[in-house]
Nucleic acid binder design. Structure first.
Length: 947
RNA sequence: CGUUCUGUAGCUCAAUGGCAGAGUACACGGCCGAUAACCGUGCGAUCUGGGUUCAACUCCCAGCGGAACGACCA
């Protein structure tokens, strides 16, 4: 007879093979069609809100692995908060303005751009952004990210643009917006400002000159050796054309300087370390060091400009190096970033007497009208004539060039708009707010605090086309800024209906309310600013444009979540705009994640060829694997990805999936309403399993609360392999398969298996939304079962399941079982047994251990999955130990436990024949006349089920 | 060069200052009633050098490697 048919073997249509790449898109479609997201929203109406505010990715290019990581993390958080009982709506956004898009549009246009109007270029930029928003939206949705994809926020939406302008006006009204000069990259042939990204470095030969500046102040009081000498400070530069704009000479505060007598009463001051080399360069063979000079002693002393009747101030700066030159740096604050910054400290003007074509203005004697690079020669000549030029050479070095025309660029000070960090106490207030925000991990606080503490004023102007204009006017006559609430509101309304384009389409008079008058000089004509805003300002006001505007959100957000680079970026700009206009940080907590790196912790780069594209992972493994990858790692550090890691995750995924499948298969005939067994009536092992489950659920809740998803992944995975697969489910097989279907002990097991499946599917739903949903659909229906697992809540924890005393006993039992399996393995090696049911074991224990194990003797047999097990006391004479039908054992063959003191295990072939039905060896097999192949227990079952 | 982090088996994660613990990979075996599954056994680690401490993976200092952000390149 074929007894297999009389067993309750698992049956399920739930596929073992996931086939994620194919099944996920189908699932997405089903969710879409059933309007799941709307249902989730409706389901949680009225609950306490949890708002994770999305930092907008830039609408350019396909998403990369880092973007995927970020979005998946957000999704896991939103889903888990949702399932934890909050109303957690997620509104995704995009950053749409800015240079990269304009740059790419420029590239596509090429020469055509020249004939186009600003409005046309802006229109092209807009449609470029739209195109990539659509691409990225599809990519994000494919990852399983749930959110308001139909209504995302876009920084280029008219209403958003209006709010950007309004917020900027608020800064102007409040008095912290001001105009000042700052050096920027400038291309003279294109007559345009350039961004850092538009600079290409190329080798180029420049003049290299040494110039002496006569020191006006007398140092002989401090350094007597200098009495009666003519003292010069010697500088070096590769841009002679900046000499007319020289306003200072910078020394390093920590370097040693020397006063060198070069004969004829002349003394040169330069860095001690560079004296020898410089003298050689100047061709001076006889010289003597008169004295050491402290940089500090020269601070704020004055030199005379070699060409003009003007002072050159001695300043101190850490940017000075000894790698080249003299250790005394020619400083033209209008032509160098460092020069500018050190100039700010010492109150020097960002003097830059050039026009847009790079020609000297009329105020520059000798060189007016000359193009700077052409003027180098004349300047050197003039310096020589004045006796200031010590040496002229040529130097080939890397010099910045324009990306478009390939001409060398210059650094040139032009008027820019700034938000002051200190005029209205913005810095101070921002620092105070930082301490009211929860930074996760904690060191995020140090990072942003240091940045805010030290940052210069925020330069918010850009000389570009694709962005929101700096919506201010200034008086034609006195350049005073014109701003009031009426103007602000008028611009806001105009932008809201026409977008920011209206600013460029109309004249100042059309934009301003009638009768606007300069409050300083009474003039009635104004200039509108044509610069646009830094895009960090755009995204920085998302709290105002999104959180404050949408009914279903709230201000401040509960959480901002981005990579650590955003301490400098979005966290930073959001903080400043919110504190500046509302006095508060726009977030209660900020969570940061690290960067994706390769297997060797190297950053991903195209040149290294170690880039992992999300699409490739999805196509090969499925989005679930990518999501599992996100969940498996501690994202606060850098996160590694590699084929090896993905393969490992795929295996782990299969394990989890198969565990669910096995549970489903064994719940095939189980109806939780009809068949569930109350806790008190369960077998002890089943109660123990619930005890373990309770611990898992608790751990899961805690980990979700703390955003520690790797803890959940590892807990869940270990639970599936250790607690379930290798223990509980393995042992359960006999009870599930061989019992009569409706026996209480089988229903007891099924009740627990149902509880387990219900819990783990809910627990994994935020991380593996596709798989969880798939399992959910296969689970037995019962009243109140949600249509989707994503409408359900995280697993509830029944306090009755906790049973420490029971757990303690069973933990010990498991330890003993571990010793039995070790002994079994030895027996297997000796070919004594194969399957564990071939074996009978004799467990010998010390008296006290024997006493504690005694009540569990039969359980120990079940748990060890052997056909027979007897428990004996250590002291007993080995001679007396016999097992039914088998010869007396020899103590030498027993396995002595190393882990458990006084425990030894003897494995012998089990007596009796193997039952054809349940595979347990028993002496009753063969004694039953009507069924000679099976054991008594199975015969009883067959009778019961009438087979 | 600066700021903020980071470094535990090949890989992913653990360890209130108190015996470094899992899974995976690998090796060997079992099973053939979860089978593109399942079970067992074994193997294997605190970056280096100092210091504090009865005791350091953990705290401190230095170095080396890695990351993010910034500065520099007149």
């Amino acid at each position: 007879m074929n007894y297999k048919k009389t067993l309750n073997l698992p049956v399920t249509k739930f596929p073992m093979k996931a086939n994620l790449a194919k099944r996920e898109p189908e699932q997405l479609k089903m969710w879409d069609e059933s309007r799941l997201h709307d249902k989730v929203r409706a389901h949680s109406a009225g609950r306490k809100r949890f708002i994770l505010h999305d930092g907008p990715p830039y609408a350019n290019g396909n998403i990369h692995i880092g973007t995927a990581l970020n979005k998946i993390l957000k999704d896991i958080i939103v889903r888990s908060r949702q399932m934890a009982g909050f109303d957690a709506v997620y509104v995704p956004g995009w950053d749409c303005h800015g240079l990269p898009i304009e740059h790419n549009v420029d590239k596509e246009l090429g020469e055509k751009k020249k004939g186009m109007s600003l409005a046309e270029v802006r229109r092209l930029c807009r449609s470029y952004a739209e195109k990539y928003i659509d691409i990225q939206r599809d990519e994000f949705k494919r990852l399983g990210v749930m959110g308001e994809w139909k209504d995302p926020y876009l920084t280029m939406a008219y209403e958003y643009e209006a709010i950007i302008a309004r917020e900027l006006c608020n800064f102007a009204l409040e008095g912290s917006l001001f105009r000042s000069k700052k050096p920027i990259y400038w291309c003279c042939s294109c007559s345009t400002a350039l961004a850092e990204a538009e600079i290409e470095y190329e080798n180029e030969a420049s003049p290299s000159i040494f110039v002496r500046f006569p020191l006006k102040d007398d140092l002989s009081h401090d350094i007597p050796a200098l009495a009666g000498k003519k003292v010069f400070v010697v500088i070096w530069t590769t841009t002679p054309w900046t000499i007319p704009a020289n306003l200072g000479i910078a020394l390093h505060p920590d370097f040693a300087y020397a006063a060198v007598d070069v004969g004829e009463g002349d003394v040169f001051v330069l860095a001690s370390e560079l004296v020898e080399g410089c003298m050689k360069t100047f061709g001076i063979s006889e010289y003597a060091i008169l004295a050491d000079v402290q940089a500090k002693a020269l601070e704020r002393k004055c030199c005379a400009h070699p060409l003009y009747d003007r002072d050159s101030l001695m300043v101190l700066g850490n940017h000075v190096t000894l790698e080249a030159g003299t250790g005394c740096v020619h400083t033209a604050p209008g032509h160098g970033r460092e020069d500018y910054e050190v100039g700010l400290e010492y109150g020097l003007d960002a003097y830059s007497p050039l026009d847009d074509r790079g020609c000297f203005t009329d105020e520059v004697d000798f060189f007016k009208g000359q193009f700077v690079f052409d003027a180098n020669k004349a300047i050197n000549e003039k310096l020589r004539e004045k006796g200031a030029l010590l040496k002229e050479e040529s130097l080939t070095h890397q010099y910045p060039h324009c990306w478009r025309c390939k001409q060398p660029v210059i650094f040139r000070a032009t008027p820019q708009w700034f938000i002051s960090m200190d005029k209205t106490g913005l810095r101070k207030r921002a620092l105070e707010e930082i301490d009211r925000v929860q930074w996760i991990p904690r060191w995020g606080r140090e990072r942003i605090y240091g940045m805010i503490e030290n940052r210069p004023d925020w330069c918010v102007s850009r000389q570009r086309a694709w962005g929101v204009p700096i919506t201010v006017f200034y008086c034609d006559k006195c350049e005073t800024l014109l701003m009031n609430q009426e103007i602000r509101d008028r611009i806001f309304d105009l932008f809201k209906t026409h977008g920011a384009d209206v600013w460029f389409d109309k004249e100042a008079t059309d934009l301003l309310p009638e009768g606007s008058v300069c409050e300083k000089c009474g003039n009635r004509t104004f200039t509108k600013e044509n610069d646009i805003l830094d895009v960090w300002f755009d995204s920085g006001v998302s709290h105002a444009a999104v959180l404050e505007q949408r009914e279903n959100l709230k201000w401040p957000a509960d959480l901002y979540l981005e990579g650590t680079d955003q301490h400098r970026g979005w966290f930073h700009s959001s903080l400043l705009t919110a504190v500046g206009t509302r006095g508060k940080a726009p977030y209660d907590a900020v969570l940061t994640h690290g960067f994706v790196v390769d297997e060797d912790a190297k950053k991903m780069s195209k040149s290294l060829g170690n880039v992992v594209a999300p699409k490739e992972v999805i196509d090969q493994y499925g989005a679930e694997i990518l999501r599992l990858w996100v969940a498996a790692t501690d994202y606060r550090d850098d996160i590694r990805i590699s084929q090896n890691i993905l393969k490992q995750l795929t295996d782990a995924y299969r394990r989890i999936r198969n565990t669910c499948r096995f549970l489903l298969g064994n719940l095939n005939d189980f109806d939780p309403v009809k068949h569930a067994v109350p806790y008190e009536s369960m077998l002890e092992m089943d109660q123990y399993a619930l005890c373990k489950l309770a611990k898992l659920i608790e751990k899961g809740h805690r980990a979700y609360d703390r955003y520690e998803f790797h803890v959940i992944y590892h807990a869940l995975f270990n639970y599936c392999t250790l607690d379930l697969s290798a223990f509980y489910l393995d042992i359960l097989k006999d009870r599930l398969y061989a019992s009569a279907p409706a026996r209480p002990e089988r229903r007891s097991a099924q009740t627990v298996m149902y509880a387990i499946l219900d819990a783990i599917v809910r627990l994994m739903a935020p991380i593996l939304p596709f798989t969880a949903e798939e399992v959910w659909r296969f689970m037995p229906a019962q009243e109140g079962k949600a249509e989707s697992v994503h409408l359900a809540s995280l697993p509830a924890r029944d306090p009755a399941w906790d049973n420490d005393a029971l757990a303690k006993n069973w933990d010990h039992l498991i330890e003993v079982r571990g010793e039995v399996t070790k002994a079994m393995e030895e027996a297997r090696v000796r070919k004594l047994v194969g399957h564990s049911l071939d074996a009978a074991v004799i467990v010998s224990a010390s008296p006290d251990r024997y006493e504690s194990l005694k009540p569990y003797a039969d359980v120990l047999r079940t748990v060890s999955i052997v056909s027979k097990l007897s428990l004996v006391q250590e002291e007993e004479d080995e001679e007396e130990q016999t097992l039914d039908g088998i010869p007396k054992s020899k103590p030498a063959e027993a396995y002595e436990s190393a882990a458990v003191e006084g425990l030894s295990v003897l494995v012998v072939p089990a007596p009796g024949d193997k039952c054809e039905r349940c595979w347990i060896r028993d002496v009753s097999v063969g004694t039953i006349a009507e069924a000679p192949g099976i054991c008594q227990r199975c015969q009883d079952v067959l009778t019961e089920i009438g087979a």
